[in-house]
């Protein structure tokens, strides 16, 4: 109990310090456009369900952003995990893809913006599924393919790299042990490599989601967006509403940390063997 309390206190020192510096600087600046006070930002959270600068409530914007990120992330992960596993498993597959992947990896997802827009235009989930015009269409129209692409790109690379590394670093003794126990190639793949690499795969998924989420603001800067936390930040900036910009930043940080902790809980629950195995 004492220990948990101490841990909590230690982890709160820096955030508290930041708040103090922020508040002091805000008083010093006397200019809400440069730096609003904590109170101003807090007020936005107290009235979170208000309609902000015509973009709807904060929960609604978070919801829209979450769906965007999760759809992009899902697409990225669905390609990255099998590819990473195969690259880790087979030297040939690795050689085919590695250079290709390495050329694209250093390109920041945002650099894809113009191309994504040119290729996918205004296509959205609504137009992709040919939805009839109506409320549904307007809602799903928020999810532009170009945005999904950018976020997917952001999540893809860390996932591929982590999964490949995880599969490659499975100890040879484990594979040899399985072989002498009579494992088929399929057994080796599904009963040894995948479970042995699972902690790295989960770690890759975790980093991928964090990066995908961090691509949000850039993706939501694309034209055609009328909602989402990223768009809220961009639009609030144009209106010189720095308090709303900070509100949006806190939302992104908070939701990101929350998603991350979900992964941490899963990893601790199911993969504790990894940290305890010498």
């Amino acid at each position: 109990m004492q220990k948990t309390f101490n841990k909590l206190i230690l982890s709160l020192i820096l955030p508290a310090l930041l708040l103090i510096v922020w508040q002091l600087s805000a008083w010093q600046a006397q200019n809400a456009t440069v730096l609003p006070t904590i109170g101003r930002v807090l007020e936005n959270f107290i009235h979170a369900t208000d309609n902000f600068i015509g973009l709807g409530s904060i929960p609604r914007n978070i919801g829209v952003s979450l769906i965007r990120v999760l759809s992009g992330y899902t697409v990225g992960v669905l390609i990255a995990v099998p590819l990473g596993v195969l690259m880790g498993y087979s030297k040939t597959i690795q050689q085919i893809f590695e250079t290709f992947v390495n050329i694209f990896r250093p390109i920041p997802p945002l650099a894809w913006q113009p191309l994504a827009l040119a290729i996918f235009g205004m296509a959205s989930i609504a137009t992709l599924f040919n939805m009839p015009f109506g409320q549904q269409y307007v809602f799903w129209g928020n999810f532009k393919i170009a945005m999904v692409f950018l976020i997917g790109m952001g999540s893809f690379f860390p996932v591929v790299a982590n999964v490949m590394f995880g599969v490659q670093s499975v100890r040879q003794t484990l594979i040899d042990s399985a072989r002498v126990l009579g494992a088929s190639e399929k057994d080796i793949f599904f009963k040894i490599l995948i479970p042995a690499a699972a902690p790295s795969i989960i770690n890759g998924l975790r980093v991928g989601l964090a990066i995908g989420w961090a691509c949000l603001v850039g993706a939501e800067m694309l034209p055609g967006s009328v909602a989402g936390v990223g768009y809220l930040i961009t639009h609030a900036y144009e209106l010189a509403r720095t308090d709303l910009v900070i509100t949006g930043m806190i939302c992104i940080g908070g939701v990101g940390a929350l998603l991350d902790s979900i992964f941490r809980i899963i990893a601790n629950k199911y993969f504790s063997w990894e940290s305890k195995t010498r």
Binding site: R171, T173, L174, D176, S177, P195, A196, F271, W273, E274
Partner: peptide, 12 residues
Amino acid sequence: GMVFQSYSLMPW
């Protein structure tokens, strides 16, 4: 069958 020097059990 074969028994290795060490660390050959599946840790999971």
